[in-house]
Design a protein around this nucleic acid. Structure first.
Lengths: 138, 138
DNA sequence: CAGAAATGTAACGGATATCATTACAGTTCG
DNA sequence: CGAACTGTAATGATATCCGTTACATTTCTG
């Protein structure tokens, strides 16, 4: 993966869990050290997934949509929809080459397995766990 | 679709295993459907890792440096040194924010776990297994 | 030895992805 | 109404990746 949206998203949600109240995109941007628009773009995905609730207008902002114990990193991962862990070439095969003709399917299986391995890892981590680490670190 | 070097590398090595003789970069490029220079760049890393042996000069080319059963996809993965599965933000923390101050370490742990999950998956797959799939597919 | 055929490698350009930023319309509270 | 938010489009800067050209170097072979 190349982009930082997943990291940003986890940071945002951890901050919201820690604050336990609404924060606006400027506050979140300050914590993440980026631009408020970048935050709002990520919040769109998180909102679609029901992980946050956002309020427009004055005194608007965002708060968690579920309890930290109910939010797994996998849910966040899916919400930001990062690109696959392993990219599979989708080029046209060289018909006269048996290897070439079968590589897409074979690598597809390898990539799917890698993806599932990551997902299993993320499934086991909740926002609450991260929150505890923050608190323990003080 | 991002970095296809790993896919390309697996394809190259599978082709070499299937052919069981030296192939030049043009033949490999035809199978992978790319440019010979792209192939040669990837071969550099594979050679450094001892996965292939290359010969310069007329009738030169590349052949496997180990038996297919001794080459795991993890070795290939390390040889091409792709970027981390999960990118961790390396921005300066906002000192007044406890979450911000701890995110790098926390996400570092998450990313390391994801990386290891992928590695464990790749460790269990050898070139020989892929080769058998090619042969079985016919 | 000369020439053909291959690799090694640098250099450049185009395509694409990502993020930052500006801008502004829409929404909501007071 | 006006201030303070979000939603979102548009643009630009930057980095990465890949393809391509170019050429030096190496090696085989006649």
């Amino acid at each position: 993966m190349v982009n930082q949206q997943f990291t940003f998203a986890v940071h945002i949600l951890t901050a919201l869990a820690f604050a336990n109240e609404t924060m606006d995109s400027q506050e979140l941007a300050t914590s993440v050290n980026t631009n408020p628009v970048v935050i709002r773009r990520i919040l769109l995905g998180l909102r679609r997934a029901g992980l946050v609730e956002t309020y427009t207008g004055k005194n608007g902002g965002t708060r968690l949509g579920k309890k930290p114990a109910e939010i797994s990193l996998l849910a966040i991962y899916d919400a930001v929809a990062p690109r696959p862990v392993i990219a599979v070439s989708e080029r046209k095969a060289f018909k006269r080459c048996q290897v070439s003709c079968n590589m897409r399917e074979i690598m597809g299986g390898v990539a799917a397995g890698a993806e599932e391995a990551v997902r299993a890892h993320l499934r086991g981590i909740t926002l609450q766990k991260l929150l505890r680490k923050v608190r323990r670190a003080g």
